[in-house]
Design a protein around this nucleic acid. Sequence first.
DNA 1: TGAATATATGAACATATAATCATATAATAT
DNA 2: ATATTATATGATTATATGTTCATATATTCA
Lengths: 97, 97
Amino acid sequence: MNVDTIYALSEFYKMFGDVTRLKILNALSDNSLCVSEIAEQLQMTHSAISHQLQVLRTQNFVKYEKIGKTVYYSLADEHIQIILKYGYEHIQERGSI
Amino acid sequence: MNVDTIYALSEFYKMFGDVTRLKILNALSDNSLCVSEIAEQLQMTHSAISHQLQVLRTQNFVKYEKIGKTVYYSLADEHIQIILKYGYEHIQERGSI
DNA sequence: TGAATATATGAACATATAATCATATAATAT
DNA sequence: ATATTATATGATTATATGTTCATATATTCA
């Protein structure tokens, strides 16, 4: 693996390495949701959610569609869910909880 | 997913979210290596490597065996490699590089 | 048009994290 | 026993990251 790949990989995995982002990804794994819905679900400010959604957009973890004044976010592709599921299984097996 | 799981998952993925740790994991994917070998391979101080190995130990990413005064580290299990490989493929497909 | 609503974003602040430096521990060799 | 080598670790420092606060933008509605 070359250096650029390593850097890209670390940026990629970093997305999963924050509780707020994981909660967002988890919330989006079922439905697409707008910023307000996510904020309410996570009990956090719109601003905090919006900032994290921007981070997730930068890494192409989420896609979005603007309808009127609300923006609906959803997971960019099934890889995200697969990786989440894999990590989840790993945690379960380990009994790290 | 409950809150504890989310926290454990974020801690788990955090391990992959740092360039130094990724390099260490990558280096260990072939062989087991001692601290000095890793340090030399990554061109970093023993101390920095040792600190990161401790972090990786905490999350059970690596196992180690002490022979004489040298400590040989290796990946704890094949999950680590699988997740690394999966992320790598994701990056490649995306053409994020 | 002006007010209200939804989201985005820049700056500031607080916290977390990684590397360094100094030192400690442990094993070996002289 | 003392010196050397390999690793570990605590404290400090520098940087990165996440949240908040204030404000901007965009869309809808009265």
